[in-house]
């Protein structure tokens, strides 16, 4: 009487819409972009050229200087996030997670506000505030006697990238704050009480007990920051335009790819070189994610409570 197992169509029906949309709009274009990087356009038809585009990108000085400039800037952009945004986020979370602190949720909501604003708002707002024409930044520095420190930061090659990185830090500090805050709350009280009995309290309890326990969350935040930074575009575009001025000093991979793909001023857009840069970005992000997954995450001890 054994009934033959019927094919369970409902599984297919449940999975199909998500898998189809995801495959058609995300995975297929991703691989198609990688494929397009191997082609070029000659007389309005697509010709296979192998790795020629990559040779141009890394070999031709006009392209390679731009690429290394964008990549270097992107690393600086990432370093500032790691060195400023994440420590501030951890510090704010550590203060907020203090059990007897009043108004904690009010502070939390207020600090998170910049994160919900769009890059367009953030980019222009800071551009206006730092502008020498309006004079809010010089005026405020003057009020504390530091007027000599003022410079039109966004217009100076030496400062523009760092300034924009700090604006981006200002915008996104809420994310590490929230994630670390959640991690800190999940540490059981018994552990902290046991430490207190041993005489470990206050700051030393943070360094010796809490910090080691939240290391996995810091790892996740680092990789999220890495991926977000290496495909950033909006803030630079909103504040400095597609040319990432002054003199390409704020150019990062996202703006470089946009310019190449769409063209600007006199240069025509080139989808194949655009794909080549996108492929390079893909490889960079993939290396970062793999380093994290195999190098960091697998070695980190996870504590189960």
């Amino acid at each position: 009487m054994a009934e033959k197992p019927r094919f369970r169509w409902h599984i297919v029906v449940f999975l199909a819409p998500a898998v189809l949309v995801y495959t058609a709009v995300m995975i297929y274009p991703l691989f198609n972009t990688l494929r397009l990087s191997l082609f070029t356009e000659v007389d309005q038809s697509r010709v296979f050229v192998g790795l020629q585009n990559f040779k141009t990108l890394f070999g031709d000085t006009v392209w390679s200087t731009q690429f290394w400039n964008a990549l270097g800037n992107n690393f600086w952009f990432f370093m500032i996030h790691m060195l400023v945004q994440n420590p501030i986020g951890v510090a704010l979370a550590a203060i907020l997670s203090h059990p007897k602190l009043r108004f904690a949720s009010l502070y939390r909501s207020a600090i998170f506000i910049p994160t919900i604003l769009s890059f367009v708002i953030v980019g222009f707002a800071w551009k206006l505030i730092l502008s020498p024409i309006w004079g809010i930044a010089p005026g405020m520095l003057d009020a504390v006697g530091l007027k000599a420190l003022y410079a039109p930061w966004l217009g100076k090659e030496a400062y523009a990238l760092t300034t924009l990185s700090l604006v981006s830090v200002w915008q996104f500090v809420g994310i590490p704050m929230m994630l670390i805050y959640a991690a800190l709350l999940s540490i059981p009280d018994e552990i902290l009480e046991a430490a207190e009995v041993e005489g470990i309290t206050g700051l030393s309890s943070f360094w010796k007990i809490k910090l080691p326990l939240i290391l996995p969350s810091i790892g996740i935040i680092s990789i999220l920051t890495f991926v977000a930074n290496f495909n950033a575009f909006d803030l630079i575009y909103a504040a400095q335009g597609a040319l990432a001025g002054p003199d390409f000093s704020t150019d990062i991979l996202g703006t470089f790819m946009y310019r190449t793909f769409f063209g600007f001023q006199l240069q025509l857009g080139d989808p194949h070189m655009g794909s080549t840069i996108a492929s390079a970005m893909f490889v960079i992000i993939l290396i970062g994610v793999c380093l994290y997954l195999f190098g960091i995450q697998s070695r980190m001890r996870r504590y189960q409570f």
Binding site: M26, L30, N32, I223, V227, F261, P271, G274, I285, L286
Partner: peptide, 12 residues
């Protein structure tokens, strides 16, 4: 797709 940004595929 959680880790790989969809923007990479923009050209296609």
């Amino acid at each position: 797709g959680i880790m790989i940004p969809i923007r990479i595929g923009t050209v296609a």
